[in-house]
């Protein structure tokens, strides 16, 4: 490969990896608090991808406005999903398996719904940017990818600030290590969990919008969340920072491999290496020897 091509693929990979990181964190946030794999996050991503398409194409074709709107809608969808399908079983003390089953069912429900309603077509977002690439010498950079990267970074930085500094953020982190004790300190744990779903939903909304914009919207866009879940697992469950790093690495590895060995072989190599990596280091990159307690 020429050095130019490598650099270009590297940048594309980081941009794509940024979106994987968004997914990994949205997924990890809920995993940390409730200790189950929240596949319904893919549902939020899918709904928001369609929602973002709809408002930007048919209502108001402004990039920033529709992105923010989609993010907020994503947040509320997260809260609704929590109240509708997770809170009732949580208050009954249901086992974690049931949370998992509910989350997978919700994701499939969303997917099937869109497949039946709008599955016969691909829906492209409007072209927000006329000139799609920047040329710096021989080096060509896609503006869409640059935009994806900066938005992912921006959203993750804000979330990181909230989790580290604010009252609600500290409460979410406290609940991640012990979900029963915060209420004895005057913290309404139901509110904390709803807020975690709200934040995860916002990330899902941004993810859906960016994916929809970079590719096109189809009913199975939610299943891209799998990459995010893989990033979360490689990063080390329980570590959001690890998920971000793993997301970026996954994106870069994917882009470089596609350029080198082609798009059809890449997934095989990626998935095989992930299994190998987890055999060697089951606790993931950030490896705290994290153990899930039921």
């Amino acid at each position: 490969m020429k050095i130019n091509l490598i650099l270009q693929q590297l940048l594309n990979g980081i941009s794509l990896g940024g979106v994987y990181a968004l997914m990994a964190v949205g997924f990890g946030l809920i995993f940390n608090v409730l200790k189950f794999s929240n596949f319904s996050h893919g549902g939020v991503v899918a709904i928001c991808a369609y929602f973002g398409y709809f408002i930007s194409q048919h209502v108001y074709p402004n990039f920033i406005v529709t992105l923010i709107l989609t993010a907020i809608v994503g947040g509320f969808i997260g809260v609704i999903i929590e109240k509708l399908i997770f809170r009732p079983i949580r208050l009954k003390g249901a086992p974690l398996t049931l949370f998992l089953v509910n989350s997978i069912t919700a994701a499939m429900l969303v997917q099937q719904f869109f497949a039946v309603m709008w599955g016969d077509n691909y829906y492209p977002y409007p072209e927000f940017i006329k000139e799609t690439a920047i040329h710096i010498g021989e080096f060509t950079v896609s503006k869409i990818y640059l935009l994806m990267l900066s938005i992912s970074a921006f959203v993750l930085l804000i979330l990181s600030y909230i989790l580290r500094k604010t009252k609600i953020g500290i409460a979410i982190r406290a609940a991640s290590s012990d979900i029963r004790t915060p209420s004895l300190m005057g913290i309404n744990i139901d509110f904390v969990i709803s807020t975690a779903f709200f934040f995860a939903g916002i990330l899902g909304g941004v993810t859906g919008y960016l994916l929809g914009m970079a590719f096109t919207v189809d009913p199975f866009i939610g299943s891209m969340i799998l990459k995010g879940i893989i990033a979360a697992i490689i990063g080390g469950m329980g570590s959001l920072g690890g998920g971000v790093v793993a997301g970026l690495l996954l994106g870069v590895a994917e882009s470089l491999l596609i350029a080198e060995i082609g798009a059809s072989l890449t997934p095989i190599v990626i998935y095989a290496s992930i299994i190998l990596l987890l055999l060697i280091r089951p606790e993931g990159i950030s490896g705290k020897g994290y153990i899930v307690k039921a």
């Binding site: 500290i170 982190r173 406290a174 290590s177 915060p182 913290i187």
Partner: peptide, 13 residues
């Protein structure tokens, strides 16, 4: 809370 530092443990409450 094991994952929070001492100061944040105070802030939770």
């Amino acid at each position: 809370f094991k994952n929070l530092n001492v100061l944040d443990n105070m802030k939770v409450a």
